[in-house]
Design a protein around this nucleic acid. Sequence first.
DNA 1: CGATAAACCGACTCAACTGCCGGTTTTTTA
DNA 2: TAAAAAACCGGCAGTTGAGTCGGTTTATCG
Lengths: 232, 232
Amino acid sequence: MKAQSLQDRMLAALAPAMHAGPPEKWQQRKSALMRERLVSAAIDCLVRDGYPGLTTAAVAGACDVSRGAMHHHFPTRMELVGAVVEQVVYHRMRTFLQDYFAAVAARRQDEPMIELACEAHWRSVQTREYAAWIELALAARTDAELAAIFEPAARRYDAVWTSEMIEAFPQWREDWDNLKLAHDFTSAVHTGMLLHAPVFGTGERLERLRRFAASTMQRLSEEGEASGRTGV
Amino acid sequence: MKAQSLQDRMLAALAPAMHAGPPEKWQQRKSALMRERLVSAAIDCLVRDGYPGLTTAAVAGACDVSRGAMHHHFPTRMELVGAVVEQVVYHRMRTFLQDYFAAVAARRQDEPMIELACEAHWRSVQTREYAAWIELALAARTDAELAAIFEPAARRYDAVWTSEMIEAFPQWREDWDNLKLAHDFTSAVHTGMLLHAPVFGTGERLERLRRFAASTMQRLSEEGEASGRTGV
DNA sequence: CGATAAACCGACTCAACTGCCGGTTTTTTA
DNA sequence: TAAAAAACCGGCAGTTGAGTCGGTTTATCG
C-alpha cells in the first residue's frame, strides 16, 4: 500500500542512528535500553524544566543510575542532547504520519482530507516530544552550540517533508506552492498557539482559533481545486 | 483627537511604575538613568544569550559598572527581571500603537485598515524588545518564579487590549468576536513565524506566509462587513 | 576457568553565578 | 562646612553544574 511505503521512507530518512545492528548480544541490548531510558528522562527534564533544567544530575537521577554510568553512554552533555534531538525529530514525523493515515483510513466520505491533516498536526504538536522540540528550538536561538546540532536536524525534517510530499501527491503538483504554504501556515499557527496558551487558555478561545485555522486551510485547498487541480 | 487619547489611556495602563515623581533632584535623575541603562543592557543580554544568559555580571559589565552598584538599584536578579518585564510589555504596546496610527494617518484611500494593522503588528514583533518578550514567555513556561512575574503582566497586556479596543471601535461591536479572533490569530501566526525563521528563512517563503496571513485577516474583515457591520 | 572488555560507581577539580557586606566616593542637607 | 544619605566598589562565601578519573562489578570470549 502506497501510504505505508511513504511512511517507511520518510521515517527511514529521519531514524536515529542507533537503530541498526540486529545481532544484539545481551550487553548491547542492555546498553541500547539504557540509552533509551536516558533519552526519555532527558525529554522529561526538558519538558518540565526547560533546556537549562536538562542537567546531567537530573537525568541520571531520574533513571536511578550514577552520573558515572551515564558518562559511559554519553561522555558529554551535548552528546545526550544530540540523541534527544534525533529522537524528537523522528517522533514528530512518526506521530503525525501515523495519526494522519489512521484518520484517512477511518474517514467518513464527506470529511475533507485537509481537515484531517490539520487535526492530526494539532494533536502531534501537543505531545511531550513536541514540547521538547519547542524548548530546543527556542534555546537554539541563543545557544550556538545547540544550534549547530538542532538546526540541521530541523532543516532535515523540513527537507524530508518537502521532497517526499511532492512525490506522494503528484496530483497537487500544479498547486504545489499552496501545499507548502499550507504546511508552513499550520506549523506557524499551531506553534504560536502553544506559546500563547498561558494567555489564551485551553478553552473556547483556543478552540475557536484552531477551527479558524483549519477552515482557512480548507478554503485554500478548495481554491486550488477550483483553479484546475483534481481532488485528492 | 480620539486616537491620541486612546493611545494615552492604553499606555498609561501599562506604564512602568517608576515614571512618576517630577521633582527630580540630580541624584534621583542619575538613579533613574542608571536603572534605565541596566534594564536596557538586560534586554540586550536576553536577546543575545537568552534567559539563562541574563546574569548579573553580564548586565553590570555591559553598563561598565560594578556588581555592587547594580545591587544598590536591584538587590536581586529577579527584581531586575521584573523591571525588564514592565519595560517589554510597555514597549510592545507603544510600538504597535505608534506604528499603526502613523500608518492610518498616512494611508491611501484604498488601503484596508486591517492590512495596516497586520503590517504594524509584524513590524512590532521584529523589535529587540519583542525578542526579549519571547525569551521571557518561553522561560516562564518552565520557571515558576519567572512565571509569577511574567504571566500576570502578559495577561494585563491582553486585558488592556481587549477592554480598550471594544471601546475604541464600537462599530465593530456586533462583530466583536471576530476582532478578538483576528488579534489572537495574528499574534499566533507572527510568533510562530519568528520561531520557525531558522527553517523558513527570511526570504520569499516567509514573505509569502506573511501576505497570506494578512489576506486571511482581510477576508475575515470583509465577511464581518457583509454580515451587517458598517465599515471602519 | 581465566583474561579481556564493557557497564557502572562515587569522589574530585574547576568554573560560573548569586547574594552579601564592609568600606569608599559623591551628593544632599542642616 | 560638617554630618547624613545615597551611589558605588571589590572581594568573600555558598551553591550548582560539567567533566575527569581510579576502582568495582558484570558479561563475553578463548
